[in-house]
């Protein structure tokens, strides 16, 4: 067991973790944050994507003790003041969701992209979500949703 302190979706938290737990396991099994999904457990599918210290990572390939002191954002932290974020709205409107299993990871990758680049080109969007597999949508509507969300969020900030 190791004691770690993290900030998760804005809330500080101190807890004990087993050393071989992955961050994904910690989130799903011990913090009941089941929005983050497991699709492969080996970095290939992106369903487990969360944002750690501003960067999207595959939480299935990060150990829980490694995130001691880190700030973590999961899909559960994406809503703003109880309302859908423009990104979430765009995903719904543009048909970027079918079964929804890839959606949380996809939204996290997109969120991280918009944090580092509020005006991404189509190529940049594709690069940012290429590590997130989706078997349902054919990706096109997801790419469109992210572009639309970027526009709305930029306009909103102005």
């Amino acid at each position: 067991m190791k004691s770690i302190s993290i900030k998760i979706n804005g809330e500080p938290l101190a807890l004990d973790v087993e050393e071989h737990w992955t961050l994904l396991y910690l989130l799903r099994e011990h913090l009941a944050l089941t929005g983050t999904k497991e699709g492969c457990g080996r970095g290939e599918c992106g369903a487990c994507t969360v944002i750690v210290d501003g960067k999207p990572i595959n939480s299935c390939l990060v150990l829980a003790p490694e995130v001691d002191g880190c700030e973590i954002t999961t899909i559960e932290g994406e809503m703003r003041n109880g309302r859908l974020s423009p990104l979430q709205e765009a995903f719904i409107e543009m048909g970027a969701i079918q079964c929804g299993f890839c959606t949380p990871g996809m939204v996290m990758s997109a969120r991280a992209l918009l944090m580092r680049n509020p005006d991404p080109s189509e190529d940049e969007i594709v690069e940012a979500i290429c590590g997130n597999l989706c078997r349902c949508t054919g990706y096109e509507p997801i790419i469109r949703a992210i572009r639309e969300a970027a526009k709305r969020e930029r306009n909103h900030e102005r």
Partner: peptide, 9 residues
């Protein structure tokens, strides 16, 4: 090399 997320690690 790999995906954006993997490259962050």
């Amino acid at each position: 090399l790999a995906s954006y997320q993997i490259r962050n690690r």
